[in-house]
């Protein structure tokens, strides 16, 4: 295991040029909802989605900075996961346009978006449980000739590619401490290990941007710290990270920029420390605090049905 997960923050900046670059780039960005970023990878306008009478998402404008870790936070039921689903094409918005790498991608099928380099994970982990860990990883690799119908019957066409993918998979699994589990069924892994596997599998596609939906949910606290380390490493390799989290304290440590959602709208933006002092943000969390227990069921249920 690389040692940098245990590094303290003071020396982190020197070891993490990615972080330093992201912080520098975002230095002059105003702390307002919908703020313009110097080098956005994702720009969305007027994205809205209604369920019944309830407006789950209503985002006027948002930009995500390239090469940074952006956290999307907000109380339960704020519409974070719904926005995620919309941006990745897994749900269709009522209105809205958004670009990825300056290219219009609204209405594009989710698999095409993934091929463009925008790869997501899921809140309820979708490890393919009756396949081995290695098969999960192999599946992640993109552009495989052997995945096409007729070439698949001629192993000599794709054997070399398969070996190369396996080498890369082993390297990634090693980084995520899963290399001992190669031939285990993914279903036999612990919750945290599945999260790691899902993340590693997403990285197999060589994404430009990974979108992690509550990567810390259901993870053993002991594993959380190393998970955070993995997320930082992803950024250090030049990949943009956008992740959803409802626990404010989790994001303080790792995110370069924080976007706060409440009741479907973006209410605040800024670096972690600034956002956490924001009156509106505190109100949003506290104001819905006693609702939280109630909406908790509601949220998890809607996620159940959307996960079908």
């Amino acid at each position: 295991m690389p040692a940098n997960t245990d590094n303290d923050l003071a020396s982190a900046n020197d070891l993490m040029p990615g972080r330093a670059a992201a912080v520098a780039a975002l230095k002059d960005v105003p702390h307002v909802p919908g703020a313009q970023k110097p080098d956005p990878i994702l720009v969305a306008d007027h994205v809205s989605r209604q369920f019944g009478g309830l407006k789950a998402v209503d985002v006027a404008h948002v930009e995500i900075q390239r090469g940074a870790i952006t956290a999307l936070i907000g109380p339960n039921g704020a519409g974070k996961t719904t926005l995620f689903n919309l941006l990745t094409g897994f749900d269709k918005p009522d209105t809205g346009k958004w670009t990825f790498n300056q290219q219009q991608v609204a209405g594009m099928s989710p698999y095409k978006l993934a091929r463009k380099g925008m790869v997501r994970t899921f809140q309820l982990t979708k490890a393919l449980s009756r396949m081995t860990v290695m098969d999960n990883m192999r599946l992640g690799a993109s552009g495989q000739l052997g995945e096409r119908f007729f070439p698949s019957l001629l192993p000599f066409l794709w054997n070399a590619q398969e070996r190369a993918n396996e080498v890369r998979a082993l390297e990634l699994l090693g980084r995520f401490n899963l290399d001992a589990k190669l031939d285990d069924f993914a279903g036999s892994l612990s919750g945290g290990q599945r999260k790691l596997l899902e993340m590693a599998r997403a990285l197999m596609t060589n994404p430009e941007m990974v979108m992690l939906d509550e990567p810390m949910a259901g993870v053993n606290p002991a594993l959380t710290q190393s998970l955070l380390g993995h997320i930082k490493n992803i950024r250090e390799e030049g990949t943009t990270v956008l992740f959803v989290e409802h626990d404010m304290d989790m994001v303080r440590d790792i995110s370069d920029w924080v976007i706060v959602m409440a009741q479907g709208q973006i209410i605040a933006e800024g670096p972690p420390d600034a956002v956490m002092r924001d009156r509106q943000v505190i109100d949003a969390y506290l104001g819905t605090h006693h609702d939280q227990a109630l909406t908790k069921d509601g949220t998890s249920l809607t996620q159940d049905s959307s996960g079908e």
Partner: peptide
């Protein structure tokens, strides 16, 4: 087989 296990996961990896 991945599709059989979880279609969305396979979609998210860019497979049609």
């Amino acid at each position: 087989k991945g599709i059989r296990e979880d279609e969305d996961a396979v979609v998210s990896l860019g497979k049609n």
